[in-house]
Design a protein around this nucleic acid. Structure first.
Length: 655
RNA sequence: GCCCCCGUAGCUCAGCUGGAUAGAGCAACUGACUUCUAAUCAGUAGGUCGCAGGUUCGAAUCCUGCCGGGGGUGCCA
C-alpha cells in the first residue's frame, strides 16, 4: 500500500466525527510541495473549521491527538492556519523499500476493482500517408492501455481505422484511369499513394478554378467593406460606437486574410497543375469529383469490381501503415475499422427510428437532443451513413461483445461536440451503464498557428519525422561515444539511436498535458536534452554503468538484501520518491493523463542524479552503505525501466 | 449568432476537484570531467499567472464581465 492510501486509512475513522464528507476531506491529504513541510500535508482542518465553526488549529490539534499514526509517521506538526504536516517514519520507508525491492511490480498493487476497458486510438485513414498529427493519439492511447493493464485492469486497444471512405473511391478511380502497371507491380504502396495524391490534385484543381473568381469578388467586397468601416471609424464619436467599429474592422481584416489565404492556396494548386502540364488531363476528367463519389457509392453498394479492388488495395494500405506502427512498436488487440461495421449501420438507424429516438428532418435521419442546437445525423439525404452511425454501431458491438465498463476515445479535441452528442445518443439508446470518455488532446499546430492540414502537401510525414529523430540521436550518440573509454560498436550505436530518437519523440508528446494544443517544432519534438526521454534513459544507463564498475553483481545484491540506509538527506528523498510510483500511476488514471507519469519519472531521475552526484556507490564509506546504495540504484533503474516501458519507451545499458 | 478550449519567465510548457514564498526545460550567464559515462550536476538571472471585479481565512486555480488567440457549429472524419 502506498503512503497516501495508508494515511487516508488512518485518518478516515477520525474524520467521521466532523463531517459526512469524509472522502472529500481525505482527498485533501496531498504530497507536500516543500521538503520543510514534511512528506505529506493534510489540509482538511480549514474547511472543517468553517463547517463546524471551531478554529481550524483547534480541530487540527484534536485530530492529531485522536489519530493513530504510529508506525507510519515520526513527525506530525500543525502549522499556519491549520495545516497538518506529516513526515514519514524512516522505518516505514525502509521496510516499504525492502518490499518494493523484492517485488516484481515494485510494490505497486493492482487495483481493487478492475474494469474492462476499450481504448480507441490512432484511427488513421488508410491510403493516406500518416503525418505528425497522427502521432498524439497513437502514443497517448498506447501509453494509457499499457498503464491500465499494469494497474490490473483489462484494457483492449482498438484501432478504428478509416478503411471505407472516399479515399477508396479516389484510388479506385485513379487506378482505373492513371495507373502505371509496372510501378504498381514494383511498389504497390508507392503507386497507390501517388494515385491518391494525383486524384486529389485534380479534384482540388477543378474546385479551385471554379472557386477562384468567386473568391476574387469576395475579396473585393471585403476590401470595400473595410474601406467603408474605416470611413465610419473616422466619423464615429461615441465611445461605444468607436469600439464597435474597431471590432468590426479587425474581423473584416481577419476575413480578408482568410480569403487571401484561400486564394493563395487555390492559385498554388492551379499553378502546380500548369507546371506539371496536366491541364489537358484535368480537362479530360472534368467530373472527377462526382465520379469519385460514384465509385465510393458503388463500393458501398456491393459492386463486385469495386469490392474486388478494395480487397486488393486494403492489405497494401494496411501494410504501409504497419511499417509506421512497427517503428513505434505499437500494436493493437483489435483493428476493427469502419468497413467492419458497414453492414450493421442500417439496423442501427432502423432501431433508433423504431424506438422513437430518430426521425426524418430535411430528408436526413436525425436524432434530436435537448442540449444541442443541431441534431446528430445518422443517415444522409442520399441514404449514406456517417461516422456517427459507425460510432454508434461500434458502441453497441463493444458493449455486447466485450461487456466494456469503459471506452476511451483518444481523439483530437475538435471532435468534442461530436462525442458529447454520441454519448448522449448512446445513453438514450440504452448504453448508459459504461463510462464513455473522450480523452481529448490538443491539436498539433503548424508554425502559422493553424492546425496541421492533411492536404497542404508539404506537411511533415510521420515516416520522415521518425527518420529525422533517429538521425539526430545518432549524431549525438556518435559524439558521446568518442568520449567513452569502452565505446559501443557501430551497429549497436544505430540501435541505440533508434531507442533514443523514437523515445524522445514519444516523450515530447506524452510529457505535455494532453489537452493543450501544441505548435509543431522539430527542435522541441526531437530535443535530446533537458526534460526528455533521453534524460531518463541516461539515468538508467548510468546505473548500469555502476554495475559494470562495482565488484558485486546484481544477482548477489538481490539475493542478500541489506537494510536501506539514509546516510544523506538525498537518500531519504530518493526513498520517498521511489515509493510514490503507485501514487503517480493512480493519478494518471484519474483523468487519463500520461504526463503525470512523465513528471514523476523526471522528478525521480532528477533526485537520482543528485544522489549519483553526492553519494558515491563504489567507494562508499562502509560495505553496508555500498550495498544500500546499490539497492537504491537497482530500485531506481527498475522504476525508470518500468515507467518508461509503460510509456512504451525503451532503455539502454550504455549510451 | 450559439457552444467549447486557451492566455503563466525571452521561448516551449507544468501547476487548475482553492492551500503556505508560482515551478521545470530550452536560451543567457558563473562554476564542476586525473573521480561510478559532463546526453550530467551545482548556481545566477528572469513573473503585476491577459485585464477588471467578486466569492473565501486563503485564488494561477472557482464565479461574472471585458480584451486577445484557436476550434466547433445539419448531411466530411
Amino acid at each position: 500500500m502506498n503512503a497516501l492510501k495508508e494515511l487516508q486509512t488512518c485518518f478516515q475513522p477520525v474524520l467521521g466525527k466532523y463531517t459526512d464528507n469524509v472522502d472529500d476531506m481525505l482527498n485533501l491529504i496531498r504530497p507536500s510541495k516543500e521538503a520543510k513541510f514534511g512528506d505529506f500535508q493534510a489540509n482538511f482542518a480549514m474547511p472543517l473549521g468553517k463547517s463546524t465553526g471551531k478554529p481550524p488549529r483547534e480541530i487540527a490539534e484534536e485530530i492529531v491527538a485522536a489519530v493513530d499514526l504510529s508506525g507510519l509517521c515520526e513527525h506530525v506538526e500543525i502549522a499556519g492556519p491549520g495545516f497538518i504536516n506529516l513526515t514519514l517514519k524512516e522505518q516505514w520507508l525502509k521496510s516499504n523499500l525492502a518490499h518494493a525491492l523484492a517485488d516484481d511490480r515494485l510494490g505497486v498493487e493492482p487495483v481493487a476493482s478492475p474494469r474492462n476497458y476499450i481504448v480507441d486510438y490512432s484511427s488513421p485513414n488508410v491510403a493516406k500517408a500518416m503525418h505528425v498529427g497522427h502521432i498524439r493519439s497513437t502514443v497517448i492511447g498506447d501509453a494509457l492501455t499499457r498503464i491500465l493493464n499494469f494497474m490490473g485492469h483489462q484494457a483492449k486497444s482498438d484501432n478504428h481505422i478509416g478503411d471505407w471512405g472516399t479515399q477508396f473511391g479516389m484510388i479506385i478511380y485513379g487506378y482505373r484511369n492513371f495507373r502505371v502497371e509496372a510501378d504498381f507491380d514494383k511498389d504497390p504502396i508507392g503507386e497507390l499513394s501517388r494515385l491518391y495524391r494525383f486524384v486529389r490534385l485534380l479534384i482540388d484543381f477543378h474546385k479551385s478554378t471554379g472557386k477562384l473568381p468567386e473568391l476574387q469578388t469576395q475579396l473585393k467586397q471585403l476590401q470595400a467593406e473595410l474601406a467603408d468601416q474605416k470611413q465610419q471609424q473616422s466619423i464615429a464619436e461615441e465611445k461605444s460606437a468607436i469600439k464597435k467599429i474597431k471590432k468590426e474592422i479587425s474581423q473584416t481584416n481577419k476575413r480578408i486574410a482568410e480569403c487571401q489565404q484561400q486564394i493563395a492556396k487555390a492559385t498554388g494548386i492551379v499553378e502546380q497543375v500548369n507546371a506539371d502540364s496536366l491541364v489537358e488531363t484535368a480537362d479530360a476528367h472534368k467530373d472527377i469529383a462526382t465520379a469519385v463519389l460514384l465509385e465510393t457509392a458503388k463500393l458501398h453498394e456491393g459492386n463486385a469490381e469495386n469490392r474486388e479492388l478494395w480487397e486488393k488495395f486494403l492489405p497494401i494500405c494496411k501494410q504501409d501503415m504497419q511499417t509506421i506502427y512497427d517503428r513505434l512498436d505499437v500494436s493493437f488487440d483489435m483493428e476493427l475499422g469502419e468497413s467492419y461495421y458497414h453492414q450493421q449501420l442500417g439496423d442501427v438507424v432502423n432501431d433508433l427510428e423504431a424506438k422513437g429516438f430518430a426521425r426524418i428532418s430535411d430528408g436526413a435521419m436525425c436524432v434530436f437532443l435537448e442540449d444541442f442546437e443541431t441534431p446528430m445525423i445518422v443517415r444522409k439525404q442520399d441514404g449514406a451513413f456517417l461516422y456517427s452511425t459507425t460510432d454508434l454501431a461500434t458502441i453497441k458491438y463493444r458493449m455486447e461483445n466485450f461487456a466494456a465498463d469503459a471506452c476511451l476515445y483518444v481523439v483530437d479535441h475538435r471532435q468534442h461536440e461530436h462525442f458529447e452528442k454520441l454519448f448522449a445518443v448512446a445513453s438514450m439508446w440504452g448504453y448508459d451503464q459504461a463510462e464513455l470518455k473522450h480523452v481529448s488532446f490538443g491539436t498539433v499546430m503548424g508554425k502559422d498557428g493553424k492546425p496541421f492540414q492533411t492536404r497542404s502537401g508539404d506537411t511533415v510525414g510521420l515516416a520522415g519525422l521518425l527518420d529525422e529523430a533517429e538521425r539526430r540521436a545518432l549524431v549525438i550518440a556518435k559524439e558521446v561515444n568518442e568520449t567513452l573509454s569502452h565505446p559501443v560498436d557501430e551497429s549497436q550505436l544505430k540501435e541505440n539511436a533508434l531507442v533514443v530518437g523514437i523515445g524522445s519523440l514519444k516523450y515530447a508528446d506524452l510529457s505535455q498535458n494532453r489537452s493543450s494544443d501544441y505548435t509543431f517544432d522539430y527542435d522541441k519534438m526531437l530535443a535530446l536534452k533537458g526534460n526528455t526521454a533521453t534524460y531518463l534513459q541516461y539515468g538508467y544507463a548510468r546505473v548500469q554503468g555502476i554495475w559494470r564498475k562495482v565488484d558485486t553483481d546484481i544477482d548477489s545484491v538481490r539475493a542478500n538484501p541489506v537494510e536501506f540506509a539514509f546516510a544523506t538527506g538525498i537518500e531519504r528523498s530518493l526513498a520517498v520518491q521511489l515509493l510514490r510510483f503507485e501514487e503517480a500511476l493512480s493519478d494518471v488514471l484519474i483523468e487519463y493523463k500520461p504526463n503525470l507519469l512523465c513528471n514523476y519519472l523526471f522528478d525521480l531521475c532528477q533526485i537520482f542524479f543528485r544522489f549519483f552526484d553526492q553519494c558515491n556507490v563504489k567507494n562508499a564509506e562502509t560495505e553496508s552503505l555500498k550495498f544500500s546504495r546499490l539497492q537504491f540504484c537497482d530500485l531506481t533503474a527498475r522504476t525508470l525501466k518500468t515507467g518508461l516501458g509503460l510509456l512504451n519507451i525503451g532503455v539502454l545499458d550504455k549510451m
